[in-house]
Amino acid sequence: MTSHHDELDRLVAAEPAATGSPDLTAIRHAGRRLRTRRRIVTGLASLAVVGAIGVPTALVASGGPEATAPDPAGPASAGQEKTRPRPKDVESRTLEDLLEDTEPSVCGVMACRFVRPAEYTKESGTVVGEVLPMGTFDGGTEVLYVARLRGVDLRTSEDAEVDVLMAGIDDGRTLRRTVWAVQPGTEPGDPDLRLYGGSKAADADGEGHHYGVIGYVAGEHDVVEVTLPDGSTRPVSGSSTGVLPGWTAFYDTGAWVDEWESRADLTYGVPGGPSCSTLTCGSIG
């Protein structure tokens, strides 16, 4: 195979089409109901606009509220009650909107508890170095590690044995992979520093939100730092030079700031060495 695109093209071409047939009657029926509902909502919204303009105008024209105040039980108040803000239609929202307030899961640093249990797969690669604990989640220790396995050299798209920075959960018996993140030494583009994560995630207690980032930087460093959007700098939550010899692997987590967009714009680096932001050198899952 020559590229990922070719490989995906092959998979798509081999994919069988669905059999069966659509229920056109039901589709049209649902469509008509939807259209009717939209017209009603649009009509009520128009009434609300007329009311909003018309009532103050009438008040001004008549000299005061005492003379024209509508009956609280009358049509005006009924109309106001029915014209609550229209909920956004699904098709009018971007995926980012939907993902923004997605709460299908609660998360540790990187692991999230999804409805689909296939999110956690047993690690099949060889763990090559230290397993760095990040915290506890889902009854185990959330860990950062590098697994060596057959994968793809992302610079050439060729099959190769690769080292992959993973996040997982170790329950003492089994290591389950939760994130296949980045590949030291076989990433395209800047090879010295790569990041993964930085999205808004629900706290494990369901009370707030946080972000989690994992990554690596070439070389063995005592300190890896993160610079927040407000310009402040601090050491990352944890780092290790033992996860993969010749590299410094790290993880970082912190409270989510409401003003941030859907991804935290954080810059990671080492003093006097490479640095890069999540938006430039980062991947997401």
């Binding site: 695109h5 980012e96 099949s124 763990v127 793809v152 089994t174």
Partner: peptide, 30 residues
């Protein structure tokens, strides 16, 4: 999705990498 086109590409690359890895190491335990 609010991501770069590069992220769209790299997501596909990583997904394929996982698939190949899964095929080549199927059945192996930790």
């Amino acid at each position: 999705l609010g991501v770069s086109t590069g992220t769209v590409k790299s997501t596909a690359s990583r997904a394929l990498s996982r698939l190949r890895s899964a095929h080549s190491t199927a059945g192996k335990d930790r």
